[in-house]
Each structure stands twice: as C-alpha cells, then as structure tokens.
Amino acid sequence: MNTSDNNELYGLLAEFPGPEPLVQATAQVYAAGYRRLDAYAPMPVEGLAEAMNFRRTSMPLIVLIGGIIGGLSGYLLQYWVAVIEYPVNVGGRPLHSWPAFIPITFETTILLGTFAGVFGMLALNGLPRPHHPLFGVAQFKRASRDGFFLCVETSDRKFSLDQTRDLLTAAGAIEVIDVPR
C-alpha cells in the first residue's frame, strides 16, 4: 500500500460499456473484498444495489429517536406549563388532563421525526459539500448521460493502486482513471 499515492488520490474511477458489465464488475470487486465503492449510472440499474450488497442505513433509527424525543418533549412541555408553571382550572378538570395533551404530542412527534429525517439524511450523505472529487474528472460528466462508472475509494482497507487498477481492468473496464482528491 502506497500511502503517498493514497493521500493525493480520492480513488480509482473505472468506466464500463453498459449496465450489465457494470453490475458484473461491481459484484466482482465486492467479492474481492472491497467495501468502500460506489457505482454511477445515468438511469436506475436493476441489481446494482444488490451487487454492492447495499445495506440499510441507520436512517430509520435516527427518525425513530427524533420522533420519540419530539413526543416526550411535547408532552413534558405541556405538563410543565399546565401543571407546574401556570396551573389554570379549566372546567374543573384535573391539571394533568392528558387527553388534551395528545394532539400537541402527536404534532411534535411528527415535527422532530421529520427534522431528524431531513437533517439525518443530509448528514449521512456528507452534505453540505460544495465540491466532490469525482467532479474533477472530465469524463465523469457522462455519468448523467451515457457513462457507467464504478469508483473504488482509497479509504478502502484493501486499496492498493496497482492491484485495484489490475482488478478493475480485468473486470472489463474500458478505462481506469485516477481521481485526484
């Protein structure tokens, strides 16, 4: 492993002639033990996510935690206001009238759950990010038109400039391009 190369490079970008070769190559590279890789295609490609063994993200957990915090804080806020800080007798009902607290609790659950969803998604995507190294490669523009790309990142434990390049070429890449950081 050549550390100086790895510091200058974001990864290796390989171009493939079509969707099927891309899926096959992705499966091969994954089978070879690489995990930090990503594929880019101009349209949804069936089987690509499975070839990368695309795991579930932690988004559901983040949203659940956001929702629970929202629900608890909404309820406790009302409890604090209505029972402790500003108790008012409304029609002889007990101060802790939970049925009336439910709508607000529901709203704050949704609110914080949604916030957790949006901001959690941005955080997991690594956003905000003004520039991505892949845009430094001229050919990468074609990923939104007719190019099928697979990128292996240098941060992968198995990454080695020569071996990875050989593997990608053997997997059927038309061209393997260095992606500067």
Binding site: R93, P99, A100, I102
Partner: peptide, 12 residues
Amino acid sequence: GYSQFLIIWSGN
C-alpha cells in the same frame, strides 16, 4: 376514534 373521544371529553 380518538377525535370522537377528545371532542366528547372536551365538551363534557
């Protein structure tokens, strides 16, 4: 179901 309960509970 809860709407029905809440409205009747509030009106009492």
